[in-house]
Write a protein that binds this DNA or RNA. Sequence first.
DNA 1: TCAAAAACATGATATAAATCATACTTTTGC
DNA 2: GCAAAAGTATGATTTATATCATGTTTTTGA
Lengths: 235, 235
Amino acid sequence: MRLLKNNTSSKTNCDLSHCFLCSNSLPGWQSLIGANRKNLRYKKGATIFNEGEEANGMYFIYSGIVKVHRRWGNQKELIIRFGKAGDMLGYRGLGDEKKYTVSATAIEPVVICYVELAFFESLLQINHSLTYQLMQCYANELQNAEKKMSNLVHMNVKARVADTLLALQSQFGKSKEGNIDIALSRQDIAAFTGTTYETLFRTMQEFIQDKLIKISGKKIFVLKEKKLAELTQVQ
Amino acid sequence: MRLLKNNTSSKTNCDLSHCFLCSNSLPGWQSLIGANRKNLRYKKGATIFNEGEEANGMYFIYSGIVKVHRRWGNQKELIIRFGKAGDMLGYRGLGDEKKYTVSATAIEPVVICYVELAFFESLLQINHSLTYQLMQCYANELQNAEKKMSNLVHMNVKARVADTLLALQSQFGKSKEGNIDIALSRQDIAAFTGTTYETLFRTMQEFIQDKLIKISGKKIFVLKEKKLAELTQVQ
DNA sequence: TCAAAAACATGATATAAATCATACTTTTGC
DNA sequence: GCAAAAGTATGATTTATATCATGTTTTTGA
C-alpha cells in the first residue's frame, strides 16, 4: 500500500491524490470522487466502526494511525493489524455478509476519506484497475493473516514479541532518534502480540536485560535486530 | 464458492463448467481455457505445492479434498482451511511475493484443473467479472482468517474443538447416515484446531462422555449442535 | 487544577495444555 | 503377505503463560 508524505495536520482535507482510492483511479475521475467522498475526523481513542455493525462505507486513511481489532468478552482483544496513511478500512464489508467483522479505532488523531459502499461498488464496476488493485491488496493481507495465524499457534510469547517489534519497525520505520516510529500503549502491543499485558511486560524486560532493545517511555529502540530475528526462527 | 455434484471418479476430466475459473468466465472463452488448462491428479497424501516454492500457477479443485496448511519445524503444522470441489488454490501467489506462503496437500484423491499464472493473469486483464469474483472470494477468506486468528487467541481448546466440529459440518455437510461428511485423521483435526493430537483426543472423549457427539471410526456425529455452539460463545 | 481513570510496574499463584512415555491397531507399500 | 509406518489410545509430568493482587505513575477531562 501507498505511503503518504508526513503531512499530518488534522486540519487538512484529502488532496484527492494520495489515498488508495484516488491513486488507483484515473485523474479524470477525481472530481467524481471529490463529489462523493466525505472527510471525517476522529480523535485518539474514537471508534471508526465496530464489529457487528452494518457495513455502510469504505474508509481511506489520509493521516493518523488506526488499529483493526476484534474484541472478546469485554476485556480481551486481538489487534489484527495497524493502518496508516494510504491504507484502507472496511472493505471486508464487501464479502457475503454486509457487516463489519472487525472493529477500527483511532489510536492517534485520524483523517479519513469516506465513501458510501454503493458508490464504491459502482466505481469497481467501471474501474477495472481499481478492482485489480483491491484484489492484489487482499492477496497480500491474506498472506499476512495466514502467517500471523500460524505464528500464534506455533511460536511462544518470546518469539511473538520479537516478531511484533520487528513488524512494527518494518511498518512504521525509525524516527531520527532511532526508535520505532509509533507510540503504542503496552496494552496495545500485548493485544497485537496476542498475549496479556503482564506477560508482554516481563518479556520486554527480558529483552532489555539482554540488551536486545532499549526503552524510554513509549519509545522503543531495537538494538539487535538480528538477534530478535533469530528468536522468531524455529529452534 | 460453488459446490460440485458428487462425481468423484478420478478418471473424469474437468467439464469446463464447474470450477471457479470456468463458472466465472463467459461460455465463449471455454475453448481458450480448455486449450490452456491441464488436468492433474494427486493421490491421497500427495503434495500439490509447498510453502516457499516459486508460485507457477493456479489450481482449481475439480474433485477431492485438499488441506491448506503451514508447517513449523518438522513436526508441527496448522491447517488453515480445507478446499473441496469448486475451490481455488495457489492464488496467494498473486501477491507481491511470487512464492507460495502455504502448502497444499491432497487428503483424498484429487483432480485439479491447472493453469499457468501468466495465462491466469492475462485472463484477469480481459475478464473484469473474474477479477471481481476473485476479489469477493478474498474478502470472505479474509474474514474467515481474521475470525480464526481471534479464536486461536481468545478461545480455550474446548471451545475451539467445538467450533472446529461445527465448521466441518457446515463446510462438508452430513452424510445420509448423519455423520460429518469428511474422513479426517485425528492429527488433521488437531492441526485444524490449533492444538496437539493428545489434547484433541481428550477433548473429544469429554464431548462423547457428555453426549455432545458420537464417534464410529472416522465418522463423527454431532448430537447436540446447540450445546456445541454454546461452548464457542464468550462465557 | 484536581479527581478519576487509564496506563505502568511487579511479585505470587494457579492452571490449561504441551510434552513425554508406552502400547495397541490399522493402513500402506514392496 | 508381511514389515514398516502411520494412526489411535491413555496415563504421568512439566511448563509456559494467564490470572490475581497491589501499588505507583501518568494522562485526561470536567
